[in-house]
Computed example of a mutant assay.
Amino acid sequence: MKLNQIIAIEKGTKSRSLQELTESHHNLQKTTLLAGISRTYRPKDEEGEQFPPESTRVQLRAEEVIRTTSEMLTKLFDVVATKDWANCQAKADVIIDGKILLAQVPATYLLFLEKQLVDVYTFIKKLPVLDASELWTFDPSADCWATEPVQTVKTKKIPRNHVKAEATEKHPAQVDVYYEDVVVGNWRTIKFSGSLPAKRVNELLNRVEKLQEAVKFAREEANNQDVTELKVGAAVFNYLFS
C-alpha cells in the first residue's frame, strides 16, 4: 500500500469512527435497551384466573458494545499509526530547473509549503505596478523610480487695453479691457514612485508558480512511497478492555 492511499482513506475512517462511537455512546444512555424482564403468573388455586407470561428481552449488552467499539476504533488507530509512522520516513527533494532547492523535505512540511505558497502568490499578485504610460528609470539618489523631467510653462493673466474709439472733444475714448496670458516662468516636474515594474512582478509570479509546481511534485513523490501497515490499536484496546 502507498502512503497516498492511506491518506485517502484516513478521513473516511475518522468520520465513520466518530459516527459509530457517538451512536454507541447514545445507545448506552438508553436504559430501556439494557433492561429485560420475565414474569409468569400462578393463581393460588386451580380455579383462579390465568394470565399469560410477560417478557422483555435485553436488546443491548454493554460488553458487546465495548467489543464492536473496540474493533471500530482499532481500525482507526491502525490507519492513523500507519500514516504517521510513514510520514516520519516520507521525504522528497524540491527540484527547480534540475537543481535541488530543498533536500529531503518531510511530506508534512511539503504540505505546509504548498498551502503557504498560495498566500505568497496572492501577496505578489497584488504588488503595485508602475504606470505603463510613463517612462521610468531607477534613481539611486531617491532610491525609487523616477520619470524624465518634464518642463511646463507658468502663465499669468495680464490686463491690456484696447482702444475702440479715440477721444474727441465731445466723447471720451472707448476702451475695452482684456487679459493676455503671459509666460512668467517654467515648471520642471519629475514624478517618483515606489511601485515595481510589471516585468519584475511577472518574474516573481513565475518564480512562485515554479516553486508551487516543484513542491506539489515533491509531495506526490513523498506520498507515493510504500508503507508498512501497522497494528497498534489491538494492543491499546486489549489493555483497556481485557
Score class of each variant (00 low, 15 high):
A62C: 06
T69N: 12
P53W: 02
A81I: 06
R67A: 14
E64T: 07
Q89L: 15
E71V: 11
T56D: 03
K83N: 03
L76H: 05
A81R: 06
R61A: 08
Q89H: 14
T74V: 08
F51T: 01
W85R: 01
E64D: 15
W85E: 01
R67S: 14
I66A: 14
E47I: 09
A62W: 04
K83A: 07
L73I: 07
E64S: 14
D84C: 04
D78A: 07
D84F: 04
R61M: 06
E49W: 00
E54R: 14
Q89I: 12
R61N: 08
C88Y: 11
E49Y: 00
E46D: 12
T68L: 10
K83Q: 14
F51R: 01
F51V: 03
C88K: 10
C88R: 13
C88F: 08
S55F: 12
T69R: 11
V65F: 13
A81C: 05
V65H: 14
T69M: 12
S55P: 09
A86L: 04
E71I: 07
E54I: 09
A86M: 03
L76Y: 09
N87C: 02
T82E: 00
P52S: 06
W85A: 01
T74W: 04
V79H: 01
E64W: 14
T82L: 00
F51K: 02
E46G: 10
E49G: 01
E49V: 03
S55L: 05
P53T: 09
R57A: 15
P53N: 10
E47T: 15
R61H: 12
E54D: 12
L60F: 07
D78C: 10
E49Q: 06
N87G: 02
L60V: 11
A62G: 12
T74E: 06
T56K: 11
V79E: 00
P52H: 02
E46A: 10
M72Q: 14
L73W: 03
Q50A: 04
W85H: 00
